[in-house]
Each structure stands twice: as structure tokens, then as C-alpha cells.
Nucleic acid binder design. Structure first.
Lengths: 229, 229
DNA sequence: AACATTCCTGACCGATTGGTCAGGTAAATA
DNA sequence: TATTTACCTGACCAATCGGTCAGGAATGTT
């Protein structure tokens, strides 16, 4: 993977070629920041594709362009690195979750939420895949997230939806299964993006196709719960 | 994992304890059938949870209750075993796919298809998970299935849906995205079953809850494309 | 210039990986 | 009963795994 038996001061040259040009200011803190970012990005890619057990630290290091030992300098264990990746993903998820609130009517609120989730599936598909892998594996690392944060959020939103039903704003359906449907449908475009691309003559959805998908999903769900469009 | 340094003819005793009582007729063919079945079941479990790269043959053998060497006697390579598992899953998927046909009106056809897919998610969640893992990993093993069989099936069904639209039986939506929505929503109950159970106070959905989920999903989708219910 | 701190990495470790093989046992055939 | 065939498995293999470590290089501080 790397050369060996080379003279010692080739290190400098190797470092440059491995890490690329520096970003500007020469602080140590900047080096740290830069390397941690590269590692976290590579880790998200590899964890998304292979899951926690299937991912190898050497593969992550390779994709980040650094030796494995250097990866372990910044992130002592694979688990620690994985937790950092999961943390980032969950925070992004939380942000999207906030877009579903009670500030306006059901149609606007749900449209905004569905669009936010769809956009997230396009801009950050890796996060969704890491999450999917984690759930498929029965959430060995994030069970606490599910039991606390996600449960509280879900309870509050099902309550909100139930109020919409009680006020006659939407048809009576079980709120939980509406939420699951929105999650499933929007995240499908990230998790199953490869299948969708394959069925699209091997190409990723174009901007226009993406907009049409968003529109179709939103229309079916809103009309499905009795909101005219 | 297994004992060692034991007298040779303990083999008999070990074999019995490892494989349990024989199923009846003592054909060699029966032994083969029985062992292959046990291995395939264990493999589906482990591949579902860890994906291809994350799964280990020793773990599969352990779960099947046989030594790893015996697993490799029946399935020489991990890849071969994986292909057999994938084959089984795809055949089941094909069976479900046949339930979406043109023999009756859109409402009945789609209701039957959604129910079949939902039932499959409950009875065979592992298959769905193996498939999900494979797609997330960009389908290294089943790309041919996607490009040929799945593509042909999808093209024929989108054509059928488009005809329904042209005949004014359902509202004009892009057929592809309707299919994706059905796949996403129904398979979500298998792939994300752990998350759903966690949000259900840690319990799997009861029979009644399952029926309500099916009803909710079907209602929203049918109403969403303009079929009254 | 001297020193301290942080960054960096080849070489290495024990454990586990997918897979092999010699040599055994059990069943089918003759 | 003798022989062929299929089944079974402990022990082993090279490769890879996650992780360590000694020690050199680069940077920051004085």
C-alpha cells in the first residue's frame, strides 16, 4: 500500500502527496481540523457502504489519503470514529425534523417536511445509508437515540397530527403510519438510490426528475390524507 | 468453540449433538437437504444483519450448529452461499411481483399488491434486509437482476399504470414514483422493523396494529392517486 | 538556538478472516 | 462382507483485521 525501505526524509514528500496542498494558515489546529474532516468524510462513505462491522479502518484511511496509523492517532478506536459519524448524521436529521411543526396548516407543514427530507436524501445520501445500516443491524450503537430523542419527537408529532384529525383538517388515519410512510418514501431515494438510478437507464435522477419525484410524493401523501391539491 | 484433544470416536456423539435428531428417512440426500437448509437459513440471518462483507462464515456456521469446515463442504465459498441466499429472495420477490397485474381494476390490483408486499415484510423480513444491504452497497452481486428482470418488470408495470391514467381510472402521476413509494413504504416495515418496534414500546407490532398499518398504507396510497375509498 | 509539543508512520501484535486438507466416520452398493 | 461414495471436522494456512508503539519530522514557544 505504501512504499517501504525508503530513505527517511522522503516522509516530507509523501506527506504532501498524501494530504494535498495545505489549506492556508499553518496552525496546528488547522492541520487537525483538516485531517479530522477528511477522515470523517471517508468514514461516512465507508460506513454507509459496508456498515460498522463490514467497514475496515484501513479502507477508511486509504480513502482519506492517510496511513492507517495516522487515522488511529486522531480516532483511537473504530467505534469512536463511528460514533462521531453517527452524531453528525443525527444532528442533521434533527434539523430536518424541526421543519415539521405546528406553525401553519397541515398542508404547508407536511409539504415543507417532505421537501426537506427529500432534499436531504439528495444532498446527504450517505448519512441516510449509515442510519439504515445501523437500524438493520438492530441499532447496537444508537438504541439510546431511538428510545429517547426519536421517541419523544415522534410522540409530539403524532400528537400534533392527531389534533389535525380532531379538528377535521385531515382524514382520520393512524399518525404513526403516516410518519413511517414519509420516512420510508423520502429515505428510499437515498438508501435505494442505486436501484433508482439503474431503473433510470443507469443515470442519477436529473434535477427535473427529482422535482417531479418530490411533487409526486407530496401530492400522493397530501391527497391521501384528504388535503386537496 | 469446539473441544479438541478428545478421543476419535467422540465424533459420533458430537455430530448428534450438533445436528439434532435426524428427520426420519435416512437417505444421504436427506442429510444434504437438511444441512443445506440449516445453512441457508443461518446465512440469511447473518447476511441480513451484517451484509456480505460484514458477515463471517464462522458466524453462519455457528448459527447453523455445524463446524465451519462442514459449511465449506456444502458451499465452497462465501460468495456462492450468498448467491444462493439472494436467489431465494429474488424468487420470493418475483412471486409477490406477480400479484400486481392487469386482471382487475386499479384499486383491487394495487390493494392486492400492497397487501402482498406488507405480508412479505412481516413473514420474511430477512430477505428484505439482505436486499436492502445489497442495494446500499451498490448491488455488487445482483446488478444483472436489476438491469434485466427488475427493469423489464418495472417497465411493464409503469406501462400498465400509465394506461390506467390514460383511461382516467387514476389521477395523472408519474408511475415510477408511485411504484417506488409502494416499495419504500412496504419494505420499511421489514428493514426498519427494529425502529418501529422501539417506537412501539419495544414490542413488535401486534396483529391488530399490523392490520391497521396495512389499511393506513393502502388507504393513503389509493386515495392519493384518486381512487375513492 | 534550544526546547516542548504535536503530528506522523513503518513495523509490528494477537485475533479473526475465508478457505484448504488429511484423514476420519457413516451410508449405499456390490 | 468388502468396497465405493458421501459426509464430517480438527488443524492448519496466508491475508486481513483493529490497534499499538517507538521514534522521527514539523511546528510552536521561549
Amino acid at each position: 500500500m505504501h512504499g517501504f525501505d525508503q530513505p527517511v526524509n522522503v516522509f516530507w514528500g509523501k506527506k504532501m502527496s498524501a494530504q494535498g496542498a495545505s489549506i492556508g494558515n499553518g496552525h496546528k489546529a488547522a492541520i487537525r481540523e483538516e485531517n479530522e474532516k477528511a477522515i470523517l468524510e471517508a468514514a461516512e462513505e465507508v460506513f454507509a457502504e459496508y456498515g460498522f462491522s463490514g467497514a475496515s479502518t484501513s479502507r477508511i484511511a486509504e480513502r482519506a489519503g492517510i496511513p492507517k496509523a495516522n487515522l488511529h492517532y486522531y480516532f483511537p478506536t473504530k467505534e469512536e470514529l463511528y460514533r462521531r459519524v453517527i452524531d453528525n448524521i443525527f444532528n442533521i436529521w434533527l434539523e430536518a425534523a424541526n421543519s415539521l411543526d405546528d406553525s401553519d396548516d397541515p398542508g404547508q407543514a407536511l409539504t415543507r417536511y417532505i421537501h426537506t427530507k427529500m432534499d436531504l436524501s439528495r444532498s446527504r445520501p450517505l448519512g441516510s445509508k449509515v442510519w439504515a445500516n445501523e437500524i438493520i443491524q438492530r441499532a447496537p450503537m444508537i438504541q439510546d437515540y431511538l428510545e429517547v430523542t426519536l421517541r419523544e419527537w415522534t410522540d409530539s408529532r403524532t400528537g400534533m397530527i392527531q389534533r389535525w384529525i380532531d379538528e377535521g383538517k385531515i382524514l382520520p388515519i393512524e399518525p404513526r403510519y403516516l410518519l413511517y410512510m414519509i420516512w420510508a418514501t423520502t429515505q428510499h431515494y437515498a438508501d435505494f438510490g442505486h436501484q433508482i438510478a439503474t431503473l433510470n437507464e443507469g443515470r442519477e435522477l436529473s434535477d427535473a426528475q427529482w422535482e417531479e419525484a418530490k411533487r409526486t410524493v407530496t401530492e400522493i401523501i397530501l391527497r391521501g390524507i384528504g388535503i386537496a391539491s
